[in-house]
Design a protein around this nucleic acid. Structure first.
Lengths: 340, 340
DNA sequence: CTGAAAGCGCTTACAG
DNA sequence: CTGAAAGCGCTTACAG
């Protein structure tokens, strides 16, 4: 049996110091650049480091320096394309600042989200990017933990915590208006949810209703479908219900691309054409929608801008240069493709 | 300007010990259960912990205990659905063992992959799950770093490193045979790559050729298309080339679902029907394929089994109970849907 | 069952 | 520019 878990005695600063004939202090300074070191000394240190294959122990640096070089990203599900794409940009933005990303998947569970709000494990991360689902705004704002925190995709009207999101009311109105301009007048909405602490769904419903009203279209509750989640299967099921109801929609505004893709699946199943019989628009602009049949018209949040803004806010907090809680509104555009 | 970055003096074991009127040792033992503690003492400790809101510092535990509670997962791109879905299962399996997952995105860059092979930063993770792209097998096997490592999706014939994968030769043969049984005889392949250190592509090509030969179908190089990556756009482009060539395929075996979805997009663009004009099959069984139009026939690797096996191998290494390098072959099945 | 002491590997005042 | 000392917060032998 090979004992692959044996940690070899790990070469430390002391070994490097001994070989380079300097003190550990000087090794540290030479490597970090925190204090000036004569070039000849530095050379010997570097030589010794290479000689020994020395690499500093992160945990020790963390303990001493009170930073981990890690930021936590907590999302409900990492295999939801929108989150996967967003995380990718977060990882890129973080790496540029020498930070590594640690993933936490909450699945929207209250307990898991409270753990996040409490800064995860003490000293585990320097800051957290958090996309909440179950926890309400009040809870976000009254938390006791002081770990730097930035909320993602949350309502842009709170005041206790930094957050970045698109203008969800405007985004929903833009989507609905696109359908109206297309000539649709029985416009359904899929993804409705009761307000519970400032989620995005109520804002989207608001934008939808506002756009209908502005166009003198009547709001028909039969056309508004609740879904628990925003997955393909939820969109499929809601669309089925819609078709089985007396609603007779000629268009559907879905609160996520996944919902929209599920809805299209249901429409095809029933032998209906998209967009001829029913036009479909989503929100998220995930890559999948560029290749679906038909391609998906959608509201595109600027994910790179969201990731960059979120990381920047977080690093301002970490650096201690943060101003009062800020809210960033990232831009969005309507991507017109074939489905609407 | 609010100074949100101020770390409050952080309550430590000593504070808890003082309040509970015991030694730090006892606090540690009471909390960890490493040594017996009288129940009355434990109660006082627990009370003090709650009173003070004490939570142990992870970095200090790491430094002392030589474990981090973190496992690193390195994949080329986390927003590729197959990886996102796999990581989800890895996160689930890891959490069950009290471990958190740290994500590294290599984008297939050689430098980034070598960093992974070197155990990332010393002391940063207890083990690594790695899906390599650029680095070759030899390099995986001759690495000097001793951080526990398990390879994902790699050829199942190496001997130096633990790895888990499906039987790619058989999977490709199964896919091709499915098309043959459907009556196709001009079967194209998309995703071909030169062998560079034991990737999966050559194995899939081998399975494809084996199946053709067994059915007395001639192998036509025109029908085999190379792609650099396995994204939707690569599949789309390869399919276009195929249609512009003299190949005249009646079916396509794609080396990933994303390639297949891109190919279907191209076929629809050219006004061809799937599967009537050209049948399409992929590999990966991503959720997207259950809702695409038409739904995607695919070879489904058991992702849960892969994640569980990988995590188990890794923890055996971490625990030091690992046997000689092992290779796990995860099961796969053909999921017949509409596209083939 | 409990405690005093040492030390994980590093960096930061402090002194020169 | 360089070094000796202290200490980040914890847990593990060691002793009782």
């Amino acid at each position: 049996m090979s004992d692959s878990s044996t940690r070899r005695p790990a070469v430390g600063v002391r070994d490097v110091a001994a070989l380079a004939r300097v003190s550990p202090t000087t090794v540290s300074n030479a490597l970090s650049g925190n204090r000036p070191v004569s070039s000849s000394t530095r050379e010997r240190v570097v030589w010794a480091v290479e000689q020994l294959g020395y690499r500093p122990n992160i945990s020790a640096q963390n303990l001493r320096g009170r930073r981990t070089g890690l930021i936590g990203v907590a999302v409900p599900e990492i295999d939801v394309p929108y989150f996967a794409e967003l995380i990718r940009h977060v990882v890129d933005a973080s790496r540029q600042r020498g930070y590594t990303v640690l993933i936490d998947q909450t699945e929207g569970r209250l307990e898991a989200e409270r753990f996040v709000l409490n800064g995860m494990n003490p000293g585990m991360v320097d800051g957290i990017l958090f996309s909440p689902l179950s926890v309400d705004r009040t809870e976000c704002e009254t938390r006791r933990d002081r770990t730097p925190l930035v909320l993602l995709g949350e309502r842009v009207s709170g005041h206790g915590v930094d957050h970045v999101a698109i203008d969800n009311v405007a985004a929903a109105a833009d989507a609905t208006n696109h359908l109206i301009r297309r000539g649709c007048h029985r416009i359904a909405a899929i993804g409705y949810q009761e307000s519970h602490g400032g989620g995005t769904a109520p804002q989207r419903t608001q934008g939808y209703r506002t756009a209908l009203r502005a166009a003198d279209l009547t709001f028909d509750p039969v056309l508004v479908r609740h879904t628990d989640r925003y997955h393909r299967r939820d969109g499929e099921q809601a669309m089925m219900e819609l078709l089985d109801s007396s609603g007779d929609p000629d268009a559907v505004f879905c609160y996520s691309d996944l919902l929209a893709l599920g809805a299209i699946h249901a429409l095809h199943d029933r032998g209906l054409r998209v967009p001829e019989d029913v036009a479909v628009i989503g929100i998220d602009d995930i890559d999948e929608g560029r290749y679906s049949t038909p391609t998906l018209t959608t509201v595109a949040p600027d994910k790179v801008a969201i990731a960059n803004a979120a990381v920047e806010l977080l690093f301002d907090q970490i650096a201690g240069t943060a101003q009062a809680p800020r809210q960033v509104v990232a831009p969005h555009t309507v991507e017109v493709r074939r489905s609407a």
